[in-house]
């Protein structure tokens, strides 16, 4: 069998570090992965939060629409606090699925398909680096920054949300335990999913542009789905977040495992 039995972590690290440095030097990559979270995790909550300080806006009619006892945690609050807690404490949750998904997708497109555009892949194939090492390095160089961006983004978001809400709440309301499940379990799964999708797409695509188009065709509907379906995620019991995270992880792992199986030298060298 040709499958390598071992992985040289030094080699994986060297490749990953190289890719991360490359990202820092590529405006076309670094700008979207910074602007997107800045907008979705900082500016959007900031403007929603400022609007939500309006004491005349009542959320009671919205809360009536929520099924079952989902509205309970909000209804337990005084009227003046309901809007801002609902919006920044709960409904903003999908952004923490969308940001890691998109960031990892952009990075994976650059790292897998971009290598083809830059014509640097052939040299790597002619080196003694094992298929598995190359694949792991590519995964790491998209996954690690996606996680970092969502975590740093979350920290900034938490500060912004608490600052905006302070005048009304006079207490820290983000993060809660459910937030931590979202950030530490569901967001990474979402990053892995974006990665899995782009790995498969990039292997088919002839260049980065095609990979981004194909990838967008999958990722954009997923973000719509996230906004539509995941808004109540934090209102549900924590088991729901755990379950959603698990489901996303399983799909992501399946996609990545299939990607790894297809990531062979012969296949890559045939598409140079």
């Amino acid at each position: 069998m040709r499958a390598p039995r071992t992985v040289d972590l030094d080699v994986v690290r060297a490749l990953t570090r190289h890719d991360l440095t490359a990202v820092r030097r590529s405006p076309a990559v670094i700008i979207p992965i910074l602007v997107l979270p800045l907008f979705l995790l900082v500016l959007l909550p900031l403007s929603i939060g400022i609007a939500a300080r309006n004491p005349d806006m009542s959320v009671d009619r919205y809360l009536d629409l929520l099924p079952g006892r989902l509205a309970d945690p909000i209804e337990a609050l005084p009227d003046s606090e309901r809007l801002i807690v609902l919006v920044l404490g709960y409904l903003i949750a999908p952004m923490f699925l969308i940001v890691p998904l998109m960031v990892s997708a952009v990075l994976a497109a650059d790292s897998f398909a971009g290598e083809k555009d830059r014509r640097t892949l052939e040299t790597l194939l002619h080196s003694p680096v094992r298929d598995r090492e190359l694949y792991l390095a590519k995964l790491a160089s998209a996954f690690v920054p996606a996680l970092l961006v969502s975590w740093v983004g979350f920290a900034v978001f938490a500060v912004v949300a608490n600052l905006v809400g302070w005048g009304i709440l006079h207490r820290v309301f983000v993060p809660t335990g459910r937030w931590l499940v979202l950030i530490l379990w569901v967001s990474p799964a979402s990053a892995a999913l974006g990665l899995g999708i782009m790995v498969r797409v990039s292997m088919r695509a002839r260049n980065t542009q095609e990979a981004q188009q194909l990838g967008g065709a999958v990722v954009v509907p997923l973000t719509v789905l996230a906004v539509a379906q995941a808004s109540y995620l934090l209102l549900y019991p924590v088991a729901v977040s755990l379950g959603v995270g698990l489901a996303v992880w399983l799909v992501a792992i399946a996609l990545n495992a299939r990607g790894a199986a297809l990531f062979t030298r012969d296949r890559m060298a045939s598409r140079l």
């Binding site: 040289d8 490749l15 440095t21 490359a22 830059r118 892949l121 002619h126 080196s127």
Partner: peptide, 29 residues
């Protein structure tokens, strides 16, 4: 034990000559 000069030089444009070579050296241990 082989070295290949490919048709396309295959250097990463965003890196210096030295950085390109040091990566190659690291990949060879």
């Amino acid at each position: 034990r082989t070295g290949v000069l490919t048709e396309q030089a295959g250097l990463d444009e965003r890196f210096t000559a030295m950085e390109n070579l040091v990566l190659a050296a690291r990949l060879r241990g």
